[in-house]
């Protein structure tokens, strides 16, 4: 599973990344986390509010710092 965090490196983006990493270790799934910080690449996902999260190239959330539990829920879907 490839998880991407879309964000320009703001505080909220870092908070999301932290939560995603915690969620992956607590849900014990096999996933790689990538960061997309370049604006054109973010916009190509159709995302206009950051931070956003994609799982296997599908946008699952935008404009929100998901909590660890919320990310776990998305990972298990």
């Amino acid at each position: 599973m490839i998880i991407k965090i879309l964000g320009t490196g703001c505080k909220r983006c870092k908070a999301l990344e932290q939560n995603v990493r915690e969620a992956i270790s607590s849900a014990q799934v096999n996933a790689t986390v990538e960061k997309v910080e370049d604006i054109p690449s973010i916009v190509r996902y159709g995302v206009m509010s950051t931070p956003a999260l994609t799982i296997d190239e599908k946008v699952v959330s935008a404009g929100k710092v998901l909590s660890v539990d919320e990310v776990v829920g998305l990972l298990k879907k």
Binding site: I42, M48, S49
Partner: peptide
Amino acid sequence: CSCSAVPLFIG
């Protein structure tokens, strides 16, 4: 939020 101003503009 000003951090999303650019993606928003392009979008």
